[in-house]
């Protein structure tokens, strides 16, 4: 009787065991494509810029250590190296570096407020305020850095 039951039920048992695993699905997992195609709002822009500025600042750290490396070769070599950083081009690049530092630190404060205060309720205005404060400090730093050039232009 038991054997008969098994024989009758065998096709159904096999079908029930395999039916789910037989479903063919398309794996659409592709984080690059999703990041590019998904609609972005303030939060996602802040996150993307935070990542970009973070990676850029790590890159700068290497450049910074490289530029200080002539210290081991004596004062003359170091002064020679430092001279190349006083050109207007490098000063402009340094000014941009300040913009990266500004965004990363101000947005960092925003993230701390989101995680530790009720910042998630006003994250949009925090983002706008970080930009306002950032732009003011950026312009102020520009005036300080290029005061000599501004003086020349005024004459």
């Amino acid at each position: 009787m038991l054997i008969l039951c098994l024989i009758i039920n065998l096709p159904f048992i096999l079908m029930s065991q395999n039916s789910y695993s037989k479903i063919k699905t398309f794996d659409q997992k592709n984080w690059v494509k999703e990041n590019l195609s998904y609609k972005k709002d303030t939060g996602s822009w802040a996150w993307i810029l935070h990542r970009i500025t973070g990676v850029a600042l790590i890159g700068y750290l290497f450049l910074h250590i490289y530029s200080l490396s002539p210290l081991t070769q004596g004062e003359a070599a170091f002064t020679d190296k430092m001279k190349s950083f006083t050109t207007p081009f490098f000063m402009f690049i340094e000014w941009l570096l300040f913009a990266f530092v500004l965004f990363h630190s101000l947005n960092g404060i925003r993230i701390v407020l989101v995680d530790w205060a009720d910042g998630a309720k006003y994250h949009r205005s925090l983002y706008v305020w970080s930009w306002i404060v950032g732009v003011i400090l950026f312009v102020m730093m520009g005036v300080i850095m290029f005061s000599y050039e501004i003086g020349l232009l005024a004459k």
Binding site: Y38, K39, G43, V114, D115, D118, A120, H123
Partner: peptide, 20 residues
């Protein structure tokens, strides 16, 4: 804290605030 979840939520739940 990317806030995509809040933008997507049809019930307008501030999910990031609850996670924080």
């Amino acid at each position: 804290t990317i806030f995509n979840c809040i933008e997507a939520c049809p019930k307008e739940i501030n999910i990031t605030w609850h996670i924080s």
